[in-house]
Write a protein that binds this DNA or RNA. Structure first.
Lengths: 225, 225
DNA sequence: ATGATTTATTAATGTTAAGTTAAGAATTTA
DNA sequence: TAAATTCTTAACTTAACATTAATAAATCAT
């Protein structure tokens, strides 16, 4: 997984350098430009995760760049944050109308700024990471709703049972070794007894039916398909 | 869902035909008129999604029509765009003062024009979809009125309780993690205690009934449906 | 077949997350 | 500014979930 890309557009080189320095220290890949037109071009070519725009810029102002990003099929879900002077109320409204994700007010405090950027990026990853629905034969595993369906009947599983089933369902048919399962569900810190896994298998089978999880003796388990 | 309605008012029949032709090709329903007075009448009767007004028109000019639309209880949220000659600076200002949503400068380039119209309409649909009325089973959450209805009984909730319920109702069934909820309701700056959220859940359940908000232990909450 | 090995089952016990209540701050409203 | 409402915390309880332990059943190897 490559670095997270951030594009900053501001006509004041000092601010540009300052933000770039702080972001690079946090291991982000930073692109900078001083005009709005170029900002959009870089956005198109680099597809950054986050674009930070000053409102006032030569050629194209921040609000307009944001609008262009929102109208671009590839870029439309890109995070956009505006840089704005405190009390610059008009721009606040205009920015949200074109779909800004956040406002960052000047003067910029580095630690607050970084926290904000991290929060934004985390928010995005939450939004997009929870959309997958897995289907294996009669079994449907819906991660965002945390439910399992067997023949249109909704079944709710406790946390670990659900995680275990998601793991198996992520690669139907593939055998997961006991060790692998322990590692992926419990992590390498927690050590539980040898028989714990069997208990989970029993409970899940009770709830979703006996046919799905298949024991591969001496190895582990798999989801039949 | 019917076609999107667009009303165009301009005193030059050539422009009217030209715009009508281009918009109908994109499957919009187009109404035209050459004077401002009639423009307002058609707006009243058809309630178009977008009104495109020439500034200079017989009887009533565009700015005045726009003002009337903005003062009309039914029409006040209608999108209004002005047609204006490039460099017609005065009107630009007057138009925004009366609440124009966009400017379209003559001469008109068809592709640019259509892109602009689409962008406007999309923007509106985004704006209004957030103040939508959400219905989940017996529960109705009306964001614009800030009320909740359960079986026709109106319930008013305090700010935070309401925001929390709106969040859950925005994606019924989807599980929101506790962290996500804290982040979205309180922001990343404010940190409240671990149990605060539970208290809100209790209060909302007391008011709207026990059946709606479902706990997903170890993860968060969701709105059942 | 039979003993060894691996997995299954069940009930009990431990642990953690969420629920509850009341009280005091902080706001808003009159 | 007093009153009322809303927000937050703290301490405690409850319920749900996770894990273990003990025993049974299945599978494998010789």
């Amino acid at each position: 997984m490559g670095k997270i890309k951030i594009l900053i557009a501001d006509d004041e080189p000092d601010i540009l350098d300052f933000l770039k320095y702080n972001l690079e220290k946090e291991d982000y890949q930073v692109f900078t430009t001083i005009d709005g037109e170029q900002a959009f071009n870089i956005a198109k070519s680099e597809q950054p995760d986050l674009v930070i725009l000053d409102i006032m810029m030569p050629k194209l102002d921040g609000v307009e760049v944001c609008r262009m990003i929102r109208n671009d099929i590839v870029l439309k879900d890109t995070l956009v944050a505006f840089l704005t002077a405190r009390n610059e109320d008009y721009s606040q409204i205009a920015g949200f109308e074109v779909g800004a994700d956040d406002y960052i007010t000047k003067p910029i405090r580095p630690r607050v700024f970084i926290a904000r950027v991290k929060a934004l990026i985390k928010r995005k990853s939450i939004d997009t990471s929870t959309e997958d629905i897995l289907q294996v034969g009669d079994l449907i595993v819906d991660s965002s709703r945390r439910i399992v369906k067997v023949k249109n009947e909704v079944i709710e599983l406790p946390k670990k049972e659900f995680e275990f089933l998601v793991l198996l369902a992520s690669k139907p048919g593939r055998v997961f070794t006991r060790d692998e399962i322990y590692f992926k569900i419990w992590g390498d810190e927690v050590i539980v007894s040898e028989r714990t896994l069997d208990v989970y298998v029993r409970k899940i089978r009770e709830k979703i039916g006996e046919g799905f999880i298949k024991t591969v003796k001496g190895i582990g388990y798999k989801l039949d398909f």
